[in-house]
Amino acid sequence: MAEKLININLKIWRQQNGQSQGKMVDYPLKGVSTDSSFLDMLDMLNEELVNKGDEPVAFDHDCREGICGMCSLYINGEAHGPDRGVTTCQLHMRMFKDGETITVEPFRANAFPVVRDLVVDRSAFDRIMQKGGFVSVNTSGNTQDANALPIPKVDADKAFDAATCIGCGACVATCKNASAMLFVSAKVSQLSLLPQGKVEAKERVLNMVNQMDLEGFGNCTNTGACEVECPKGISLDNIARMNREYLKATVTID
Protein backbone atom coordinates (compact mmCIF):
# COMPACT_ATOMS: atom_id res chain seq x y z
CA MET A 1 0.00 0.00 0.00
CA ALA A 2 1.47 3.32 -1.02
CA GLU A 3 2.14 6.09 1.46
CA LYS A 4 -0.65 8.64 1.91
CA LEU A 5 -0.96 11.74 4.03
CA ILE A 6 -3.96 11.88 6.35
CA ASN A 7 -5.44 14.41 8.74
CA ILE A 8 -6.54 13.25 12.17
CA ASN A 9 -8.18 14.63 15.30
CA LEU A 10 -6.45 13.54 18.45
CA LYS A 11 -8.09 13.57 21.88
CA ILE A 12 -5.29 13.10 24.39
CA TRP A 13 -5.29 12.73 28.17
CA ARG A 14 -3.29 15.55 29.79
CA GLN A 15 -2.41 15.48 33.48
CA GLN A 16 0.33 17.55 35.10
CA ASN A 17 1.29 14.99 37.75
CA GLY A 18 -0.01 12.25 40.01
CA GLN A 19 -1.77 14.70 42.32
CA SER A 20 -3.51 16.89 39.77
CA GLN A 21 -6.78 16.43 37.92
CA GLY A 22 -6.50 15.36 34.28
CA LYS A 23 -8.63 16.00 31.21
CA MET A 24 -8.95 15.15 27.52
CA VAL A 25 -7.56 17.82 25.17
CA ASP A 26 -8.17 18.07 21.39
CA TYR A 27 -5.25 18.30 18.97
CA PRO A 28 -5.93 18.31 15.24
CA LEU A 29 -2.91 17.07 13.27
CA LYS A 30 -2.46 17.43 9.53
CA GLY A 31 -0.31 15.63 6.97
CA VAL A 32 0.46 12.45 8.87
CA SER A 33 2.19 9.82 6.73
CA THR A 34 0.40 6.46 6.76
CA ASP A 35 3.86 4.85 6.80
CA SER A 36 4.71 6.45 10.12
CA SER A 37 4.32 4.61 13.38
CA PHE A 38 1.91 5.83 16.05
CA LEU A 39 4.82 7.13 18.09
CA ASP A 40 6.39 8.87 15.08
CA MET A 41 3.02 10.61 14.83
CA LEU A 42 3.17 11.66 18.49
CA ASP A 43 6.73 12.94 17.88
CA MET A 44 5.31 15.04 15.06
CA LEU A 45 2.60 16.43 17.34
CA ASN A 46 5.16 17.19 20.04
CA GLU A 47 7.43 18.97 17.56
CA GLU A 48 4.47 21.18 16.66
CA LEU A 49 3.68 21.81 20.34
CA VAL A 50 7.29 22.70 21.17
CA ASN A 51 7.45 25.06 18.20
CA LYS A 52 4.32 26.78 19.50
CA GLY A 53 5.88 27.02 22.95
CA ASP A 54 3.47 24.49 24.50
CA GLU A 55 4.47 21.56 26.66
CA PRO A 56 4.72 18.33 24.69
CA VAL A 57 2.69 15.25 25.59
CA ALA A 58 4.67 12.93 27.87
CA PHE A 59 4.51 9.25 26.92
CA ASP A 60 6.69 6.22 27.72
CA HIS A 61 8.68 4.66 24.89
CA ASP A 62 12.17 3.38 24.30
CA CYS A 63 13.18 0.58 21.92
CA ARG A 64 10.48 1.32 19.33
CA GLU A 65 10.65 -2.21 18.02
CA GLY A 66 8.11 -3.91 20.22
CA ILE A 67 10.32 -5.63 22.76
CA CYS A 68 11.19 -3.37 25.71
CA GLY A 69 7.59 -3.07 26.91
CA MET A 70 8.00 0.59 27.78
CA CYS A 71 5.33 2.00 25.44
CA SER A 72 1.74 1.70 26.51
CA LEU A 73 -1.29 3.85 25.54
CA TYR A 74 -4.96 3.04 25.38
CA ILE A 75 -5.94 4.01 21.84
CA ASN A 76 -9.58 4.16 20.81
CA GLY A 77 -10.44 1.99 23.78
CA GLU A 78 -7.84 -0.70 23.18
CA ALA A 79 -4.45 -1.32 24.76
CA HIS A 80 -1.80 -0.71 22.06
CA GLY A 81 -4.56 0.32 19.64
CA PRO A 82 -6.60 -1.45 16.99
CA ASP A 83 -3.96 -3.75 15.45
CA ARG A 84 -3.27 -7.25 16.82
CA GLY A 85 0.05 -8.68 17.99
CA VAL A 86 1.76 -5.31 18.16
CA THR A 87 2.84 -2.76 20.72
CA THR A 88 2.01 0.91 20.21
CA CYS A 89 5.44 1.58 18.70
CA GLN A 90 4.69 -1.03 16.02
CA LEU A 91 1.20 0.29 15.33
CA HIS A 92 1.24 2.16 12.04
CA MET A 93 -0.92 5.05 10.92
CA ARG A 94 -2.14 3.04 7.93
CA MET A 95 -4.56 1.50 10.44
CA PHE A 96 -6.42 4.84 10.65
CA LYS A 97 -8.64 6.68 8.21
CA ASP A 98 -8.34 10.22 6.94
CA GLY A 99 -10.37 12.49 9.21
CA GLU A 100 -10.59 9.92 12.01
CA THR A 101 -10.85 10.96 15.67
CA ILE A 102 -8.36 9.06 17.81
CA THR A 103 -8.58 9.01 21.61
CA VAL A 104 -5.35 8.39 23.50
CA GLU A 105 -5.40 7.58 27.21
CA PRO A 106 -2.91 6.11 29.67
CA PHE A 107 -3.18 2.49 30.82
CA ARG A 108 -5.68 2.77 33.64
CA ALA A 109 -5.59 0.67 36.82
CA ASN A 110 -5.37 1.44 40.52
CA ALA A 111 -2.06 -0.35 40.65
CA PHE A 112 -0.70 1.80 37.77
CA PRO A 113 -0.95 5.42 39.02
CA VAL A 114 -0.52 8.18 36.43
CA VAL A 115 2.86 9.97 36.62
CA ARG A 116 2.15 12.56 33.95
CA ASP A 117 -0.05 12.68 30.83
CA LEU A 118 0.20 9.20 29.33
CA VAL A 119 3.01 7.96 31.59
CA VAL A 120 2.03 5.51 34.35
CA ASP A 121 3.97 3.83 37.16
CA ARG A 122 4.18 0.07 36.55
CA SER A 123 6.68 -0.69 39.32
CA ALA A 124 4.11 -3.02 40.91
CA PHE A 125 5.20 -5.55 38.27
CA ASP A 126 8.80 -5.31 39.44
CA ARG A 127 7.79 -5.86 43.05
CA ILE A 128 5.87 -9.00 42.08
CA MET A 129 8.95 -10.32 40.27
CA GLN A 130 11.12 -9.62 43.31
CA LYS A 131 8.95 -12.03 45.32
CA GLY A 132 9.81 -15.07 43.26
CA GLY A 133 10.21 -14.47 39.53
CA PHE A 134 13.63 -16.14 39.53
CA VAL A 135 15.59 -19.31 40.14
CA SER A 136 17.76 -19.00 43.25
CA VAL A 137 21.12 -19.63 41.65
CA ASN A 138 24.17 -17.48 42.26
CA THR A 139 26.70 -16.56 39.61
CA SER A 140 29.46 -19.08 40.08
CA GLY A 141 30.84 -20.18 36.77
CA ASN A 142 30.59 -23.81 37.78
CA THR A 143 26.93 -24.65 37.53
CA GLN A 144 26.50 -27.94 35.71
CA ASP A 145 27.00 -28.13 31.96
CA ALA A 146 24.08 -26.64 30.07
CA ASN A 147 23.42 -29.91 28.26
CA ALA A 148 23.65 -32.11 31.37
CA LEU A 149 19.89 -31.92 31.75
CA PRO A 150 17.94 -32.46 28.54
CA ILE A 151 14.61 -30.64 28.49
CA PRO A 152 11.84 -31.93 26.20
CA LYS A 153 11.50 -29.53 23.29
CA VAL A 154 7.78 -29.18 23.84
CA ASP A 155 8.34 -27.96 27.42
CA ALA A 156 11.20 -25.69 26.39
CA ASP A 157 9.03 -24.18 23.65
CA LYS A 158 6.08 -23.60 25.99
CA ALA A 159 8.41 -22.04 28.56
CA PHE A 160 9.80 -19.80 25.85
CA ASP A 161 6.34 -18.73 24.69
CA ALA A 162 5.45 -17.72 28.25
CA ALA A 163 8.82 -16.01 28.70
CA THR A 164 8.22 -13.67 25.77
CA CYS A 165 6.01 -11.47 27.97
CA ILE A 166 7.38 -7.92 27.79
CA GLY A 167 5.77 -6.66 31.01
CA CYS A 168 3.95 -3.80 29.29
CA GLY A 169 0.75 -4.10 31.33
CA ALA A 170 -1.70 -4.24 28.41
CA CYS A 171 -3.37 -7.21 30.12
CA VAL A 172 -4.05 -5.15 33.24
CA ALA A 173 -5.27 -2.13 31.28
CA THR A 174 -7.60 -4.33 29.24
CA CYS A 175 -9.03 -6.40 32.08
CA LYS A 176 -12.31 -5.11 33.51
CA ASN A 177 -10.99 -6.17 36.92
CA ALA A 178 -7.50 -4.75 36.33
CA SER A 179 -6.13 -8.20 37.05
CA ALA A 180 -2.44 -9.01 36.56
CA MET A 181 -3.02 -12.75 36.24
CA LEU A 182 -1.73 -13.03 32.67
CA PHE A 183 1.53 -11.27 33.56
CA VAL A 184 2.14 -13.23 36.75
CA SER A 185 1.12 -16.54 35.23
CA ALA A 186 3.53 -16.08 32.32
CA LYS A 187 6.50 -16.05 34.70
CA VAL A 188 5.10 -18.76 36.97
CA SER A 189 4.48 -20.94 33.91
CA GLN A 190 7.88 -20.40 32.37
CA LEU A 191 9.67 -21.48 35.51
CA SER A 192 7.30 -24.31 36.45
CA LEU A 193 7.78 -25.89 33.02
CA LEU A 194 11.55 -26.08 33.42
CA PRO A 195 13.34 -28.45 35.77
CA GLN A 196 15.47 -25.58 37.11
CA GLY A 197 12.34 -23.78 38.28
CA LYS A 198 10.50 -26.72 39.79
CA VAL A 199 12.53 -26.73 43.02
CA GLU A 200 11.01 -23.46 44.23
CA ALA A 201 7.70 -23.74 42.39
CA LYS A 202 5.57 -23.81 45.50
CA GLU A 203 7.01 -20.76 47.28
CA ARG A 204 7.17 -18.91 43.99
CA VAL A 205 3.50 -19.15 43.12
CA LEU A 206 2.35 -18.39 46.66
CA ASN A 207 4.63 -15.38 47.10
CA MET A 208 4.01 -13.88 43.68
CA VAL A 209 0.24 -14.22 43.92
CA ASN A 210 0.31 -12.75 47.41
CA GLN A 211 2.27 -9.72 46.21
CA MET A 212 -0.07 -9.36 43.23
CA ASP A 213 -2.99 -9.07 45.66
CA LEU A 214 -1.12 -6.61 47.90
CA GLU A 215 -0.47 -4.33 44.93
CA GLY A 216 -4.19 -3.94 44.41
CA PHE A 217 -4.69 -5.85 41.16
CA GLY A 218 -8.15 -7.36 40.70
CA ASN A 219 -9.17 -10.97 40.34
CA CYS A 220 -9.45 -13.03 37.18
CA THR A 221 -12.92 -13.89 35.94
CA ASN A 222 -11.78 -15.75 32.82
CA THR A 223 -13.04 -13.22 30.30
CA GLY A 224 -9.95 -13.64 28.14
CA ALA A 225 -9.70 -10.02 26.95
CA CYS A 226 -6.08 -9.93 28.16
CA GLU A 227 -5.08 -12.68 25.75
CA VAL A 228 -6.71 -10.83 22.84
CA GLU A 229 -4.91 -7.57 23.54
CA CYS A 230 -1.56 -9.04 24.58
CA PRO A 231 1.00 -7.84 22.01
CA LYS A 232 2.99 -11.03 22.45
CA GLY A 233 0.09 -13.47 22.31
CA ILE A 234 0.65 -14.83 25.83
CA SER A 235 -1.90 -17.62 26.15
CA LEU A 236 -4.69 -17.92 28.71
CA ASP A 237 -3.40 -21.47 29.26
CA ASN A 238 -0.77 -19.90 31.48
CA ILE A 239 -3.44 -18.68 33.88
CA ALA A 240 -4.85 -22.20 34.06
CA ARG A 241 -1.38 -23.54 34.72
CA MET A 242 -0.79 -20.98 37.46
CA ASN A 243 -4.11 -21.89 39.07
CA ARG A 244 -3.06 -25.54 39.11
CA GLU A 245 0.31 -24.60 40.58
CA TYR A 246 -1.41 -22.49 43.21
CA LEU A 247 -3.87 -25.20 44.11
CA LYS A 248 -1.07 -27.76 44.30
CA ALA A 249 0.90 -25.45 46.58
CA THR A 250 -2.00 -24.79 48.91
CA VAL A 251 -3.32 -28.33 49.35
CA THR A 252 -0.05 -30.21 49.71
CA ILE A 253 2.09 -30.32 52.84
CA ASP A 254 5.88 -30.57 52.82
Binding site: G141, Q144, A156, Q196
Partner: peptide
Protein backbone atom coordinates in the same frame (compact mmCIF):
# COMPACT_ATOMS: atom_id res chain seq x y z
CA UNK B 1 30.88 -21.52 27.95
CA UNK B 2 30.12 -20.59 31.58
CA UNK B 3 27.62 -18.02 30.39
CA UNK B 4 25.45 -20.64 28.72
CA UNK B 5 25.62 -22.88 31.81
CA UNK B 6 24.71 -19.96 34.06
CA UNK B 7 21.79 -18.85 31.90
CA UNK B 8 20.33 -22.33 31.61
CA UNK B 9 20.56 -22.67 35.40
CA UNK B 10 18.56 -19.42 35.68
CA UNK B 11 15.78 -20.80 33.51
CA UNK B 12 16.58 -19.04 30.25
CA UNK B 13 14.58 -20.97 27.62
CA UNK B 14 17.11 -21.38 24.82
CA UNK B 15 16.06 -23.17 21.63
CA UNK B 16 16.39 -26.95 21.88
CA UNK B 17 16.30 -29.81 19.46
CA UNK B 18 14.04 -32.86 19.73
CA UNK B 19 16.57 -34.66 21.88
CA UNK B 20 16.14 -31.92 24.47
CA UNK B 21 19.64 -30.54 23.96
CA UNK B 22 20.57 -26.99 23.04
Amino acid sequence: ANIIDQCVAQGVPFARDYGGLL
